[in-house]
Design a protein around this nucleic acid. Structure first.
Length: 212
DNA sequence: CTAGGGATGGGCT
DNA sequence: GCCCATCCCTAGT
């Protein structure tokens, strides 16, 4: 066993239990341009290919390990960043013991440090609360790309501070933008801080594009 | 305010 | 060759 710190220990369990407890945590990324820190306000849990109780066809790991999703099978506390829609990055924090794939997708947050740098990275943002109000927005504001996939979020140039055990009001609901729910759509995969203005606006998965 | 569609390229069948 | 764990702008209520 490794002599991991308490944060990694905390992340080494069930992503569905960890996700709501990560609300309010602060993830920091230091770069040459400066530091940006985000207080996480919305998350989604994603599981691996071997959970018979709650099979997760919406997860990138559903069909087994690949080069892209390899970090999800690795140690807790590392980042899994993927590229999608030809232009966007989204970031996860890996959970569970090494070898058992799971992660939490960072869906939204409040920029609590480096707002100026975050705005420079996201010039289309019209209000401070929109700087990280979506998974790709959050990744962009933090300056995360696939280059960072697999890196340890608990060590330099990153940092993760857990929230104080609090009575924060947590809401739960279905995932956003995931078509392959399978039999899991009734399960609370998504968690957010009730009423927080930075939470992404819900948008159900779109149906197939109509014929031209 | 909501609904719709275009952008744009890696990942996987 | 199809599918995206999305965002943003436009047009219409």
């Amino acid at each position: 066993m490794t002599t991991s710190g308490p944060v990694r220990q905390f992340l080494s369990g069930d992503a569905r239990e960890i996700a709501p407890l990560l609300l309010g945590a602060v993830l920091t990324h230091d770069s040459d341009d400066g530091s940006v820190a985000v207080r996480i306000t919305e998350l989604e849990a994603y599981m691996g290919p071997v959970d018979s109780l709650h099979p997760d066809p919406g997860s990138h790991t559903y069909r087994g390990p690949t080069r892209r999703n390899a970090p999800m099978f690795g140690p807790a506390g590392h980042l899994y960043v993927y590229f999608t829609y030809g232009m966007h990055y989204c970031a996860n924090i890996v959970c569970g013991p090494a070898g058992h794939a799971s992660a939490v997708l960072l869906r939204a947050g409040e920029i609590v440090e480096g707002r100026e740098l975050a705005l420079a990275r996201r010039p289309t943002s019209k209000a401070a609360k929109d700087l990280a109000s979506g998974p790709a927005r959050l990744a962009t504001a933090l300056g995360l790309t696939t280059e960072d996939s697999g890196r340890d979020a608990l060590g330099s140039p990153f940092g993760l501070v857990l929230p104080p055990a609090s009575a924060a009001h947590v809401s739960t609901g279905p995932r956003v933008g995931v078509a392959g729910h399978g039999g899991t759509h009734d399960y609370p995969w998504r968690f957010w801080l009730t009423g927080d203005p930075t939470v992404s606006r819900y948008k159900a998965a779109k149906a197939r594009t109509p014929r031209a």
